[in-house]
Design a protein around this nucleic acid. Structure first.
Lengths: 240, 240
DNA sequence: GTCTATAGCTTGATAGAC
DNA sequence: GTCTATCAAGCTATAGAC
């Protein structure tokens, strides 16, 4: 970017984003942030308030923009398939593509943002509140779209299937390098195009398998779902 | 449990586990841990060494036991279907059931342990090293089993599909309460039996969809997110 | 094995000068 | 808007008495 000095609040947000991405909320001190941003310590308090206020502002800055993109893409998918509901692949693509695209090609700031999202989503302390605050209105709209695209599905199956999608997606954002170790370099955490190419069909198949379970419809879906094989090795039951 | 006082190292591990589960490695001080364990501050250093040593010991204590259970279950699935490889449902069940069962019915300590795993898995700092250290030898065996059960599959598809499973599973462990908010109480984070019932068919369908995909040619270049760009509403390809 | 004591720093937050 | 100065509290780690 240009050599012109960015406004102080932006400098603080940028530095905070970069540092929080690696060590999380508690692993970074306000002093480290202001030091990296090359501004005075007191300015965090002046511009943002508490450290937690800064943390939420770091997330909100990009979440807002992102949610608009995803909503636009969902609306477009709906328009294009109207009057029928779009295929779930299109819905899942609208949900995931803007994220993976920004992380892959949006620059270091976006990558840091997504790494923070991965941690927040999996935090017992912040996950329930912060994630819901940033994303739930949007997610509700996607849940509605999935419901339209999966007629007759049980809502509980849709919510859990969404939960699995959320976990797979945010672990991807963490880019921990673990799949690099595991695959001896065959796959790379940073290769988000490979992820996107696979995540959509994987998740779509999962949604269909769950939501078509137990349905006694005569009309055959596009693809038969294989019967589950009960591999309860220890004889215990897992269901109440 | 017995009223007899537990050994100091166990008291420290228990308290550390409980506190790390909520606020993570940096969000908890050694003093908080020893205070909760009702032992002296200096005893962490004496019994474990550094704070990070304690953290890894908290994980190792249960990971070891768990991995043995999962391996036993995998071997049993293999024996039962021999000479054919087991269905992938059986492999995925052996991978996930011991975890979800321990978290659901193993008591508070296990729940805390899994909450820590969720955070570590999604941590750019610890995810690559700590998770690999605790689980990769086991995961390699499961990857081999999946390969046997999915003849002809591309290894990259297997690794990425495993990655998606890992993310879905560990987000479940975090039990953040977010799905409770989202579903207005219809689903509950703590209802791990509902998770297990759905995770296995979901993941199995995802594996099959990925690994049985026709050999696809190179992906088309990525499109911009803007309105005029088609959103792949047809679901034919996921490359957006 | 346990505890006292402490070294040496760092923490988040802010009051008040400019 | 920025900076100096400071607060009261907390931090990890350890040496040394018992």
């Amino acid at each position: 970017m240009g050599k012109a000095k960015r406004p102080t609040p932006d400098r603080i947000l940028d530095a905070a984003e970069r540092l929080f991405a690696v060590r999380g909320f508690y692993g970074v001190s306000v002093r480290e942030i202001t030091s990296a941003a090359d501004v005075d310590v007191a300015l965090v308090n002046y511009h943002f308030g508490s450290k937690l206020d800064l943390y939420t502002d770091v997330l909100g800055r990009r979440s807002q923009l992102l949610n608009q993109e995803r909503l636009d893409m969902l609306e477009q998918a709906r328009r294009e398939s109207h009057p029928k509901p779009p295929a779930i692949e299109a819905v899942i693509n609208a949900f995931t593509y803007p994220l993976l695209n920004r992380s892959a090609r949006g620059g270091a700031g976006w990558k840091s943002y997504f790494a923070i999202i991965a941690q927040v989503n999996n935090s017992p302390e912040f996950g329930g509140t912060l994630m819901s605050q940033q994303f739930d209105p949007l997610v509700q709209k996607f849940i509605d779209a999935l419901r339209d695209s999966l007629p007759g599905a049980d809502d509980r199956d849709i919510y859990w299937a969404y939960h699995f999608l959320s976990g797979a997606l945010t672990l991807t954002f963490a880019e921990t390098g673990r799949i690099d170790n595991l695959s001896h370099g065959l796959c790379r955490s940073s290769d988000l195009d490979s992820v996107h190419e696979r995540l959509v069909p994987y998740v779509a198949a999962g949604f269909r398998a769950l939501c078509q379970r137990g349905r006694q419809r005569a009309a055959p879906p596009r693809r038969a779902v294989k019967r589950r094989s009960p591999a309860r090795a220890d004889g215990q039951t897992t269901e109440g």
